[in-house]
Each structure stands twice: as C-alpha cells, then as structure tokens.
C-alpha cells in the first residue's frame, strides 16, 4: 500500500471520528399512563431525532456528497437502521444486565423489550452486541463500520455502478484496510466486513418490529421515522 493511500485512509477515519455525533438524550414521553407505551414512544422520538442527525452525519462522510441525490436517498433509505444499530450495539457492549443501551438515559432490558413488543429486536441486537464485544472493536473500527454499512446498503441493480458509487465504497474500504495494516492486523478488515450481513439481518428485524407496532397496535410515529420505515 502506498504511503499516500495510508495517509488518506487515516485522514478519512480521523474525519469520521471527528464528525461522529454526540449521543442524544431521550426525552421521556408523558402522554399516556401505559408505561410500556410510554417507553416505546420515548424510543420512537429518540430514533426520529437520531435520524435527523444521521442524515447530516452522512453528508460529512467523504464521498457521500459527490453521489447523485437519488443515490444519497437510496443509501439512506436502505442503510439508516443499520447505521443507527451499530451505535446501539457498541454502547450495549458492557451494559449491566444485558440491557440495550439506546442512549445514556434509555436502557431497556429483556423484560422491558418484551413488554413493548420488541422481544424479537432484543434477541437480534444482543446477538450483534455479543459479536462486536467478542471482536473488541476500536472506536476507529466502529465509525468506519457505520459508514461502510451505509455505503454498502444500496439495492443491487443489473446496471453498472456509477464511478462515484464505486469511489465512495472504495475510499472507505481502503481507509479500513490501511488502518488495519498500520495495526498489523492483516485479516481484520475482512472479518469486520463479514459482520455486515448480521448487521443487515438485525436492522431488517428492527424495521419489521417497528412497522408491526405501527400497523397492528397503531403506535403513532413521527413523520420522518415513518417515511424511512415505509421506504423499507
């Protein structure tokens, strides 16, 4: 690997670390006496605000703004849940009592997830969390994985990819390879990429869980969150 690409890789990861958003705090919902529904509405409000932050974050990923508007929309519509769940799994690694740490002041254990209709999501996310914990991810790897999840999320089409799409994916891939080479971890980039299918499965289960709650239990959702769930 050339020293130029090494330098570029490090710059991309440094930039991703620098632009990683500060975690939001959950605003406790008080609109109902049903405590499970309150928890769920608190979580949905948090996710809606996180989506806004995520869209601004995506614009900061090197190469993203060079994509066409259609491609930007397509990647965000496919990959937003994956990008959000990387953060949840990372924060839940050392949680007491196997809780899911959606944010510092919103931690849900298995019983709470079951009560809110998110038992399926709990199981899938704990599995992903265990995987990341076993791999002992570094913060550099977490931010790069999050960006790669988004870059990799586009729908596969029979048409050749645009140059900008390829450059966007290759830039992140090269950054990860260079970072792992600098740590003398030859197989690590490949191992990280091999976790992306599990992340996608987990995100699909999360989307299905929220859509089920909205359609079957008529849980009200914010407009942006609903629009992004519907896009799936």
């Amino acid at each position: 690997l050339s020293s130029t690409s090494c330098l570029l890789g490090n710059k991309i990861i440094s930039h991703l670390l620098l632009t990683e958003p500060t975690p939001l705090a959950a605003n406790q919902d008080n609109s109902t006496n049903d405590s499970s529904l309150r928890t769920l509405l608190t979580l949905c409000d948090l996710m809606n605000r996180e989506l806004l932050v995520l869209i601004d974050w995506a614009k900061e990923i090197p190469g993203f703004s060079g994509l066409s508007l259609v491609d930007q929309m397509s990647l965000l519509q496919s990959g937003w849940m994956e990008a959000l769940l990387v953060g949840v799994a990372w924060r839940s690694q050392d949680a007491v009592g196997e809780e899911l740490v959606f944010t510092g002041n919103l931690r849900l254990d298995e019983a709470q997830c079951r009560a809110t209709g998110l038992a399926d999501l709990y199981e899938a996310l704990r599995h992903l969390t265990a995987k990341y914990r076993a791999m002992k991810l570094s913060p550099e790897e977490v931010v790069t994985l999050k960006a790669m999840a988004l870059a990799n999320s586009g729908k596969s089409t029979p048409f050749p990819q645009q140059d900008t799409d390829v450059q966007f994916q290759d830039g992140l891939h090269e950054a990860l390879q260079d970072y792992e080479s600098s740590r003398r971890e030859q197989h690590r980039a490949g191992r990280l990429l091999m976790t992306l299918p599990l992340l996608r499965q987990t995100a699909d289960r999360a989307v299905q869980a929220f859509l089920r709650l909205h359609r079957n239990r008529h849980v009200p959702l914010h407009k942006l969150l609903l629009e992004m769930l519907d896009a799936k």
Partner: peptide, 20 residues
Amino acid sequence: KEKHKILHQLLQNSTSPVDL
C-alpha cells in the same frame, strides 16, 4: 420524490462537500 419528501428536503439543504 413526493413519497419521500422529508428525506429529499433534508438532503437538498446545502452542504459543502468534504475535501480530503
């Protein structure tokens, strides 16, 4: 576009491309 109008609007807000 109409169906995904919030995302469309949020992305159209001007942003400077990152030059690395």
